[in-house]
Simulated assay, not measured.
Amino acid sequence: MWEITLVLSALACPSLGAPQDAVAPTPAQIIFQNAVVNADGSFNYSFEASNGIKVEESGYVKPAIDVRAGLGEDKNEEDNGDSQVIQGSFSYTAPDGTPINLKFIADETGFHPEGAHLPTPPPIPGAIQRALSVLPDATSEPPPQ
């Protein structure tokens, strides 16, 4: 009995190691590409591929202004917390055929994408909205005691 198991497993192993996708996809070709990087940290980058992918990005360095220390863009401070601001967009076709278009901006406050395919939160139910409207404003001053 163990001989049959050994023979069957020996025959099955090569088929398990075979590639599952016999047709290799054709690599995408770059149709257009442009990149400009400046000494001040600003840049502009874009490309388009033969499979429909399009990408555009641009960015610049935003000088930080430290009000407490009097530091700003006119001061020569080595590490004043400058931040990079990048904005751009990309588009492609999802595997199910849906066109995906996304615009974004990324800065010191984070990454902020916009696109019709992104999920949105459900609306706040009316009862919760009414309860929130009667709560005191957290930004207002506390009542005198």
Rank of each mutant, 00 (worst) to 15 (best):
E3F: 08
V36Q: 13
Q84R: 12
N38M: 12
P14W: 00
E57V: 04
P119L: 00
D74A: 15
P144F: 08
G52S: 08
V61E: 01
E48P: 01
G110R: 11
G110I: 14
A106W: 01
I31E: 09
S15V: 15
P25F: 01
I86C: 05
G41D: 07
K54Y: 04
L118Y: 15
L6G: 13
A64R: 04
A131R: 13
V37A: 07
E77A: 15
D107Y: 01
P142D: 09
S15F: 15
K54M: 07
E141L: 15
Q129N: 11
E108N: 12
I65D: 02
G97I: 04
P25L: 08
P125M: 09
N76Q: 15
D66P: 01
Y92H: 00
E3M: 08
P25M: 03
T98F: 06
C13K: 11
A35E: 12
A127V: 14
P25R: 06
N38R: 10
G81H: 12
A10S: 14
A131M: 05
T26N: 10
H112W: 06
E73C: 09
W2L: 03
E141I: 03
Q87T: 06
S83L: 10
I30A: 03
P99M: 13
A12W: 09
P122D: 13
P143T: 13
E77C: 10
T93D: 04
S91V: 01
P136V: 09
G52K: 01
V67E: 14
C13V: 13
G126M: 11
L8C: 11
L132C: 00
A131W: 02
H112M: 07
Q129C: 05
G70E: 06
V85D: 03
N76A: 12
D21I: 02
G72V: 10
K103Q: 11
D107S: 13
G88R: 01
P99R: 08
Y92R: 06
